[in-house]
Each structure stands twice: as structure tokens, then as C-alpha cells.
Amino acid sequence: VLKKILGNFEFRCIVGVLACFAFLQYGQIRVENVILHQGETAEKTSLPISRKMMQGEIFRVSFIISNPLNLRYDLNIIPDDCAESLTINGADIPLSDYSGRCNYSKGFVLADSVTAPHRVGPRTTYELTLKNGGGPGGINVFPKGTGFTDALEIVIAILVGLALASLCKRRKWHSFLLFCIVFGVFLRFAMFSALPYTQFANDVEGHLAYIQYIADNLAIPAADECWTCYHPPVYYTVAAPSLVVSGLLGFASSAGVQLFSLALSILVLICGLTLLKKLVDGKSLIVAAALWTVWPTLLLVAPRIGNDQMFIALHVLCLLSGFNYIRYRKGSSLVFAVVCAALAIWTKSTGFISLALVILMAVAGYL
């Protein structure tokens, strides 16, 4: 039995993924010791910082970036609202050339070549002075490793794609569909690693605060407890463990929630292809599968944080099992479809579409 397991292709891929992940986890570039100085007070906190502040208030934020393997990295700094000055290990870095130093959505990027001359050893202290232009003030920082970490991420993406394609191959999938899976998984990983969660996002800090509330209190907040708490709770509850786990592993807490979105978008890819395979064949299947694999909305959800992606996943599952019910008249498929529709409604109110669909399918299948 052991020989059979060790010789299994998917098993080898999973071992490869875990090995790469262990390297990433050990060598990852972390932001530590975040301290917010407001006037005379200094407070230890964590990123992202977003506080109520007076208009025009000047505040300082210091943090340490630990880089155990001394990898090259770029630093994306997103100030809210303006970064006035920056020191790296005490050395002043002029910011006047950075057009994004007042851009609170994308921020600016300090290239490795700028910071490298001032970095000594694995830990580097950064200190920024910022000015709040109005509304809440704060900062977020994303170190982005280049070279070695990119290579590891690419290997992980390919191994995950190959493992999933190999599972589908056992079910006698067409080679073009297998290619769609490998390519689609790769594209989703690329979106996940290239885009910060703030891109293409609505109220994303609110969604994170909602998930954090559930992780902290182990309870669902009242609708007026936070500014996105009026949303139904299923997505936020299911995403809470991923937030806790990524925190425990020392990654940014948002990374785990993004990874959950990535997993959902891969699930959507595979379930969608399964459904298309049942509906059409020949050239139509090739066109449909290619469109499904590269459809922009379905790609964009991979790095995002929000309840849309879970709604999409549940809707596709609902559609697939409802279709199975009509085709094979298996009641258990309909039970599954109803459960998915119920979860979809309590994920996002758009889920009413899934409910209507299930009713139609229940009637159609029965008659």
C-alpha cells in the first residue's frame, strides 16, 4: 500500500507543494514590530493601520522588515494619505521623486536597488513620517520578494495545476480540458501573487474587519456592529479559520483569506468545466472551456477579499448538482443543490438567483 501511495503522481505533487511552501514560510519577508507614534504616545500595533485622526495631523510609523535569507525585495508602501519622509536604518531617503507618495489606493514602490545599500543583516528598521489629509489616517506595507520566492510560487502553481489535471485525467477528461486546468490554475496563481487585495476591491477593509470580528469573538456581529456587517455571515464565518491560520504561520492575516479566494476560484474553474463537458462537446466545448478558463471576472476574484467569490462557487456547485438531478433523477443531487442555494443566499443576497434556479430545476427534474 505504501509503495502505491508513494508512487502516486498526485501524492508526489502535494509533497512538492508542501516542500516549496515550507521554504517560502521559512524565508518569507515579514513586517514586524509595527509602532505608531502619535504626538507623545507610541503604540505597538499591526498592519494595516487605519485610525481616526485630525485633518493635517502628522504621525510616525516605524517597523522592522525581517528577511532571514537576505532575498531581494521591493517594498510597496500605501500611505493614508501622504508619506512625508522615510529613513532606513537611520539614513534619509528622499521621497520627492515618488508620484505615489500621496496615493492611498496604490501607494508607491521602493525598488530593491533603493533600499539595498542601507540594509545590513536580516533585519532592517524603517521609519516613515506621514500626514493625514482627512478621514482616517494610516499605512499598509507589502514586501514583495523577487527572484527566489517568485520561482517557488511558480513551481507551486504548476504542481497544483498538474495534480488537479491528473485527478481529472483519471475520469477520462479530454486533453484540451486538462490543459485548461493547468493553464487556468497557473493564471489564478499569477493573479494571486501579482495583485494586492486592495486592487479591484470594494470596502475590503470592512470585509477584513468583519472576518476579524468573527475570529476574535467566535460570534456573528449585529448588523450595525461594523460598516459591512449588514452582509449575510456565511462567507465571513468560513473565511475566519484561514485568517487565523495565516496569522499563526506568520504571514499577513489577509494572505490566508486571499488564499481561500484562490481556492474558491480554482473550484469554480473545475466545476464549470465539468458542467460544460456535460452540456456541449466537439468544437463548442473547446470554445466554451477556453472562455470559461480566461473569463476576466472569474480570474479577478482570485486575489480579492469579499463574498462574491464564495457566491460564485456555490452558484456553480448548485447549477452542476441541479443539472445532475435533471439528468439522472438522483434525489441526493437535489438535496446538495438546495443546500448550496441556501448557503449562497446567506453568503450574498444575489443568492436568490440560485434559489430560483433550484426551484426551476426541482420542477423540471420531477416532471
Binding site: G331, L334, V335, A337, V338, A341, A342, I345, A362, Y366
Partner: peptide, 22 residues
């Protein structure tokens, strides 16, 4: 005649509506 699992799914569907009403 409907199968047992079909009846279960109809009951669940009804429960969803009851849940929504609340």
C-alpha cells in the same frame, strides 16, 4: 412517486423559505 431523497430536498427548500421569512 417521488423518492425519499426528493422529499427531503423539498422539505429543505421549504425550510429555506421559513428561514428567509425570519
Amino acid at each position: 412517486a417521488p423518492s425519499k431523497t426528493e422529499i427531503i430536498s423539498w422539505v429543505l427548500l421549504l425550510l429555506v423559505f421559513v428561514g428567509l421569512a425570519f
